[in-house]
Amino acid sequence: MAVVETRGLTKVFKEGQLGAVNNVDLVTREGEFLVFLGPSGSGKTTLLRMIAGLEQPTAGEILIGGNVVNHLSPRERRIAMVFQSYALYPHLSVYNNIAFPLKAQKIKKELHREKVEWASSLLGIGGLLDRKPRELSGGERQRVALARAIVREPTVFLLDEPLSNLDAKLRASAREDLEQFHKRIGTTTIYVTHDQVEAMAMGDRIVVLHQGFVRQIGTPKEVYDDPADTFVATFLGSPPMNLLESDDVVVGFRPEHFLPADRLREGSRIPLRFRVTYLEFLGAERILYGSLAGSRFEEKEVLSRLPAAVSEAFQVASVYDFGVASESLRFFDRQSEKRTQPKAIAWQ
């Protein structure tokens, strides 16, 4: 078990261009499940590959267990990685796939069977050992990849979008399996994904990346409730946070906090008129699309997300009394887009 740390880590692929990863400082905690979350092209996979030793950083340091590992090759870093495509060796049986790291690291042959059986039973694939990868389903392949990763008992686990090749239903159960698995083995794990639901559900902490910069590091609750800037505010949450520009600040509030006025306490309520233009019924909730009416934010587009418990009927093209509690507001600097102190702003 070990802590991974990066100091000023930077990767520039083409000189003169913006880096794929820029000046990233982060430290994992012992046994933590850390998620790198960002849209495609945000540098999360490059960051992971640098930690694995598959890419050389342009600048900065990587430490695993307190030692600088920049000069070490992937095999010397005692890490395990699960790839997006699983990268199972197509010409080897499941048994030999799982035993591959043991052979490669010249671990005594007598120990192989025992270790492979331990890893495969942990993942419930003991019955598949004689098959070839092409004879396995997507979920089984993922388990083989995980078994191959744990068999040598690594100090750190790196997972690169391991669920993205599974269909939606399998993904949910595989997510749960992964969480259980992490709880059982307790190894420090870094998990890359572009799926915010995965990140929120699995991460002890989330590192939000955008254009190679770390935008925020925090628990799922922190990044959702207290986004550090407007990118995090709109990237997390579906639908995203409503943002209104007012002078030098941007005011944000989540769609689930933008409710019919009578649902909010009178004292802290900021009343807003809402013209509904489109309605989506999603079963457990409704999404109302529309714009503000009759204030200085006239025509600004906003969304409201109503739980099933709110049963009022809403008509398209009608205007309703809505509002948002003042404690639900988040303020950002308009220039830097960073979070700022709450400010009094004129609403009308």
């Binding site: 095999r75 395990a80 990685m81 790839f83 990268a87």
Partner: peptide, 17 residues
């Protein structure tokens, strides 16, 4: 796929290996 070789290198082989 390149990932296969990446995996082999993480699993303990050199590039030549």
């Amino acid at each position: 796929p390149k990932e296969l070789e990446d995996a082999a290198m993480v699993d303990g082989l050199t590039r030549f290996g």
